[in-house]
């Protein structure tokens, strides 16, 4: 049986002990900053001077950098190449035959890449330092429906569960003589024998789990309590309020800049 999929890395220091809502608000503030800033240097500085030190403080720098670059490196590379050649502009840096690599395209690619890097980095920081069930508990205590919170937490487990179940079905089909390796056509054909049993078994499991949850009072009306204790403080509440104001201000300034006639 595979372990529950979670990026969370428990540590006694850094962001981990903070209230989940504080971390969520910090993430949203950083994201607002990344969207609002129009200069790629400031966007990359957000990553290098805010997110990286926070990851180091939380003792998750290694996985933070690894996940960030593994996920984005191929994408960023293609973005810089494609935008450089095809983004409209006049300042040519170099030419390859009939194609011209332009400074405007490079600038746009860097800004977009920086925003992606900050967006992913901020989200990673949240996921690596926060248990998703605690975050949902915090949101439920602030009025989010328990059903929605449950769906969010369990959805994160669907992909690995699908993977392991798919492997088991594939093995079973192979044992019955199905050829799953070879040409593209043969592999595509093998998928026909994987998808229906995977879907049907998953639907049946979901149905059975829904019934079992009802037996444990999941649908019972009335207030629910929590096993986990989420510690909060006056200082964190102030930080959250300031972050919210800052995020709104940054978005407001950005919107005003976009709306201003040139």
């Amino acid at each position: 049986m595979s372990p529950a999929p979670s990026l969370y890395l428990p540590q006694p220091t850094g962001l981990q002990p903070l209230h989940p809502l504080t971390k969520l608000v910090l993430t949203l503030t950083v994201l607002s900053g990344a969207i609002s800033l129009a200069d790629p240097r400031y966007v990359f500085a957000t990553y290098g001077l805010i997110l990286v030190p926070l990851a180091g403080w939380s003792r998750i720098l290694g996985p933070f950098l690894r996940y960030s670059f593994r996920a984005l490196a191929p994408f960023l590379l293609s973005l810089v190449i494609i935008q450089g050649f095809f983004y409209p502009g006049e300042l040519v840096i170099f030419s390859l035959g009939p194609f011209h690599y332009k400074a405007e395209g490079l600038g746009f690619a860097l800004l977009f890449s920086g925003r992606l890097l900050v967006g992913l980095g901020a989200s990673l920081l949240l996921l690596l330092t926060t248990r998703m069930d605690h975050l949902m508990q915090a949101l439920t205590q602030r009025g989010l429906s328990a059903q929605i919170a449950y769906i969010v937490v369990t959805t994160l487990q669907i992909i690995p569960r699908f993977q392991s179940r798919g492997e088991a079905i594939f093995d079973a089909q192979r044992a019955r003589g199905l050829k799953t390796e070879g040409s593209l056509l043969r592999r595509a054909r093998a998928l026909f024998f994987l998808v229906p049993p995977l879907l049907f078994s998953s639907l049946m499991e979901t149905d059975a789990r829904a019934v079992a949850l009802e037996a444990r009072g999941f649908g019972k009306p009335g207030p629910k309590t929590s096993w986990a204790v989420l510690t909060d403080s006056g200082g964190q509440r102030i930080v959250r309020a300031l972050c919210a104001v800052a995020a709104l201000a940054m978005i407001g300034i950005r919107l005003a800049a976009v709306a201003r006639p040139r």
Partner: peptide, 23 residues
Amino acid sequence: FSQISGARFSLEEEVAFGLENLG
């Protein structure tokens, strides 16, 4: 397997899930 809530990260939290629902 279908009786595990899928929303809790340890056995004690899983066992407490029903008690949470009952308030």
